[in-house]
Write a protein that binds this DNA or RNA. Structure first.
Length: 875
RNA sequence: GGGGAAUUAGCUCAUUUGGUAGAGCGCUUGCAUGGCAUGCAAGAGGUGACCGGUUCGAUUCCGGUAUUCUCCA
């Protein structure tokens, strides 16, 4: 039996023999494409070739691509593991033609590979062809039909509708008819009884699509119309997991050697057995085996779990896995991180990035698991309260809003709420829950609604010529523009034929500046990339957009940004020198004000290490090393010792930035200074943790460092002035603090003594009225708090008492009333009530308290004696 | 980007219409005790995240800021 590794290799070998260039998988996390968080199809990394934004290096390419699908039309996270063939992360084998071969070769080769190389029986295969669509005015794909006829019997060629056989990248963009290959894996007996042709595209678990050949020939516009593409392309995708299942003769993807190692490891860890059924326990095995792949590879590609965007998707997947082992494998401690090593070994020779970072990835996973188990603990307490409330209301249904609050605010999964409810004989009001969820979704959608118009072409032309490395000004013309509406604000995106504007990339912010037209000037507020397209963001549209334009970058900002980018390289190299070679960039932000650098490292960077790193960087600045930037082949750069980043996509030719070839060589597309001396000075401003195994350093350099230091010095000098120019300000402050503490203590004891004096004096003034010990007096204290203290103190020295103490503090009246419990019971007196009903109105204020002691404050201090008389009269 | 929640002693957390801020663990001290988280007693430890408002009075109500958690996009 072929192993999965052999099957993958045979695919690549086959297409290499057909003149294809084998390329590595693009990172699973997508950068520079606002429409996509993750690579969800093999073609993503070639999108620009189809759109015509970039020229392909090879016209025939094949690869295996790491893909992730967790939502949308292709997949639903909640379904994964329930069946035996959906996955979050999977490998997509694909072959491509960029304006090279078309339907004839694609069809012939896919047939040859499946039947001759892999040896799948021809009578188990069916193919589908686009039947045409009247509404779109599209004809049947006769070409594909005729080519298939040469290989397969006509009764095995089935016609498919637009939904199954017309592939579109998104709402707009390249698209075209496609032709799918399905395989019937049922036993012979079943095949005799039911014709496989009737089960194609019918969600039968054993009659499945394994390969889709897309023939791109149209471009979909926003008005839904189709335009022919200038060149025709082939885009194919074959899911490796399904292919392996078919070739290994299994009925479930999870029974192939792609997953069996992980499942065995889970069995060992949980002391439970996987029994190939639909039980919750077996679903849990599949969920874990699937999810750990998605989690591991995404983190290896540089995406840490977080609470937004792509990081949030990872967190959700991870938490779903925890939920399953927590509920159905009866495992209450971190488990997933043990599986990372198993996967890393399995994929060592396919996707080596995981093995290279296995320690980091498993630590991040463990930390994330622990965090969620803590969240669950908190949720369990909360749900106890909710269940108690539900019982109190004598209801059998947990309120949907409560369930939603539990989910929304405390992150407690709804299925656990359901389960725990059930254990207590309670249902959950699911309709109300869904209603709340829908509202939440609508709110979010409304807040991020984005309306993008079609591009308006001003001038025909290919890709933008970027001249920003050499210049900050350039003569240009507008190629195209479009209007974008978000949150009721209109803005415009402009593409130029030539631009000095650097688009946000590699952590470096996009340039700002202006576009100067003959009679007007338009501010550019940001520059971003959409794949390889450089887009300038403007708030207004120039009137004469077809006129020649001078594109001018804000030079000062650019210089400060370049300073921080070069400083980042010096810092990276210094960190590797001081901390070790395990330091790798995990994230970076570079702008004109500062730099932020995240990197893998397992402990806090000590003050001494920080100081050494700063010293090295400043030393390199003083050496005034010329910054040498060269384009070269990637292999050449790696041979030089250049640092390439995980999760970055590099072409064949790379840009290499060197600051002393023995010190720092990095692959980098950013802008840099001419020599390190331009940085002037470098200062680390903070060191902190971002996630398990990832530290963050923030630093300033250049003019920003000068400002930083000046501010600090200014602060110190102000402090010194404030301290009457003390020689040692630190000592002076310590002295002040000590003195303050001593004085406070002193004042406190003085006050206490004073209050004791007042109390003792009052104790001599008590009178007995109707068997009640009464004390009523206006005393001289400095705060309402002291008044209360005296009252409390008196209470503990008198039996059967009623006390009323008044004070005039800064012209305002304050009253405290104390009533002994015995008196309260015998006479029906209540300090709180006396205050509210009798005293507060007198002094024009308010008050309250308990039965035994209560206080009041007011506006009219002239009525204090009346207050005492009033209380006396109540006895 | 849009919601929700939390922030109280060194740690984990209580405190209901706004009216004397508490517990457990830990710490200090004393006494007792041949036993692995020992017992008893006393004590220290608080700008209730920060800033502002309402109120006679705010830990509590309202607004803002920061940090953390969480859901959605």
């Amino acid at each position: 039996m072929l192993t999965a590794n052999e099957i993958r290799q045979q695919f690549l070998d086959f297409f290499r023999s057909k003149g294809h260039h084998i390329v590595p998988s693009a990172p699973i996390v997508v950068k520079n494409d606002p429409t996509l968080l993750f690579t969800n199809a093999g073609m993503n990394q070639f999108k620009d070739y189809f759109l015509g934004n970039r020229e392909p290096e090879y016209t025939r390419v094949a690869d295996t691509q790491k893909c992730l699908r967790v939502s949308g039309k292709h997949n639903d996270l909640e379904e994964v593991g329930v069946d035996t063939y959906h996955h979050t992360m999977f490998e997509m084998l694909g072959n491509w033609s960029f304006g090279d071969y078309f339907k004839e070769e694609a069809i012939a080769w896919s047939w040859e590979l499946l039947t001759s190389v892999y040896g799948i029986a021809k009578d188990r295969l069916y193919v589908t062809v686009f039947q045409g669509d009247a509404a779109e005015n599209l004809p049947k794909d006769e070409e594909a039909y005729n080519f298939w006829k040469q290989h397969i019997a006509e009764d095995r060629i089935l016609m498919g509708n637009k939904k199954d056989n017309f592939w579109e990248m998104g709402d707009t963009g390249p698209c075209g008819p496609c032709s799918e290959i399905h395989v019937d894996c049922r036993p012979d007996e079943e095949r005799k009884q039911t014709d496989g042709a009737t089960l194609v595209n019918a969600d039968h678990p054993q009659v499945i699509e394994i390969w889709n050949n897309v023939f791109m020939q149209f471009n979909r516009l926003k008005d839904r119309s189709l335009q022919p593409l200038p060149a025709m392309h082939v885009d194919t995708g074959m899911g490796l997991e399904r292919l392996v299942r078919v070739l290994q003769g299994k009925t479930s993807n999870y029974d192939t050697d792609l997953f069996s190692g992980t499942i065995a490891a889970i069995e060992k860890l949980t002391h439970k057995e996987y029994t190939y059924t639909d039980s919750k326990k077996d679903v849990a095995f599949r969920v874990l085996a699937d999810h750990i792949r998605a989690i591991s590879f995404t983190i290896a590609d540089g995406q840490l779990p977080s609470n937004t965007g792509a990081g949030y998707v990872i967190r959700r997947i991870l938490r779903r896995a925890v939920r399953y082992y927590y509920s159905y494998l009866d495992h209450k401690s971190p488990l997933l991180h043990h599986l990372v090593h198993v996967l890393a070994r399995q994929f060592e020779h396919v996707f080596s990035e995981l093995q290279q970072q296995v320690e980091l990835v498993s630590r991040v996973v463990k930390e994330e698991e622990e965090a969620f188990l803590r969240t669950l603990d908190k949720g369990l307490k909360k749900i106890d309260e909710i269940i108690t409330d539900t019982f109190k209301e004598q209801s059998k249904t947990i309120n949907g809003r409560a369930a939603f609050e539990l989910y929304d605010t405390y992150g407690f999964p709804i299925d656990l709420t359901r389960l725990i409810g059930l254990e207590n004989g309670l249902q959950v009001d699911e309709a109300a829950f869904e209603h709340e969820m829908l509202q939440q979704k609508n709110r979010s959608r409304a807040a991020t609604a984005l309306d993008t118009d079609d591009w308006v072409v001003v001038k025909e032309g290919g890709a933008t010529n970027f001249v920003g490395y050499e210049h900050t000004e350039a003569e240009a013309s507008v190629l195209k523009y479009r209007r974008v509406k978000a949150k009721g604000k209109e803005s415009y995106q402009i593409v130029l034929d030539t631009t000095p504007f650097y688009a946000e990339s590699g952590g470096q912010v996009g340039d700002t500046g202006e576009l100067i037209f003959p009679n007007e000037s338009v501010q550019i507020v940001d520059t971003k990339k959409e794949n390889d397209l450089i887009i300038h963001f403007a708030e207004v549209l120039p009137e004469n957009i077809s006129a020649p334009v001078l594109a001018k970058v804000d030079g000062e900002k650019r210089v400060s940004t370049a300073v921080h980018h070069s400083a980042t390289h010096l810092l990276h190299a210094a960190l590797r020198e001081v901390l070790g070679k395990h330091v790798a960039q995990k994230g970076s932000l570079v702008n004109e004000e500062h730099l932020r650098f995240d990197f893998s490292h397992f402990s806090k960077v000590t003050d001494e290490e920080i100081a050494r790193v700063e010293a090295i960087v400043n030393e390199k600045i003083r050496e005034n090393i010329p910054v040498v930037i060269k384009s070269m082949l990637k292999d050449e750069a790696v041979a030089l010792g250049a640092m390439a980043l995980f999760g970055e996509k590099y072409g064949n030719v790379v840009r290499v930035v060197m600051m002393d070839p023995n010190y720092s060589i990095e692959l980098c597309g950013g802008t840099h200074v001419g020599a390190t001396g331009q940085l002037g000075f470098f200062k680390i401003t903070s060191e902190s943790a971002v996630a398990a195994g990832v530290r963050r350093i923030e630093a300033v350099s250049g003019i920003a460092a000068e400002h930083f230091i000046n501010e600090k010095l200014q602060l110190i000098s102000t402090i010194q002035t404030q301290l009457k120019n003390a020689k040692d300000p630190l000592k002076a402050i310590e002295k002040l603090q000590d003195e303050k503490a001593a004085l406070e203590k002193h004042v406190e004891s003085m006050e206490a003594r004073q209050l004791v004096g007042i109390r003792n004096e009052l104790l001599t003034k008590d009178e007995i009225i109707n068997q009640v010990t009464f004390v009523g007096s206006i005393i001289n204290v400095s705060s309402a708090d002291a008044l209360k203290k005296v009252c409390t103190d008196l209470k503990s020295h008198l039996n059967d008492h009623v006390i009323v103490l008044c004070a005039n503090i800064d012209g305002k009246p304050f009253v405290a009333v104390g009533v002994a419990d015995t008196v309260a019971a015998a006479k029906g007196l209540d300090a709180g009530k006396i205050i509210k009903e009798h005293i507060a109105p007198l002094i024009k204020g308010g008050g309250g308290g308990q039965k035994a002691i209560a206080t009041a404050g007011g506006q009219d201090a002239s009525k204090l004696q009346e207050v005492i008389d009033k209380v006396k009269s109540l006895l």
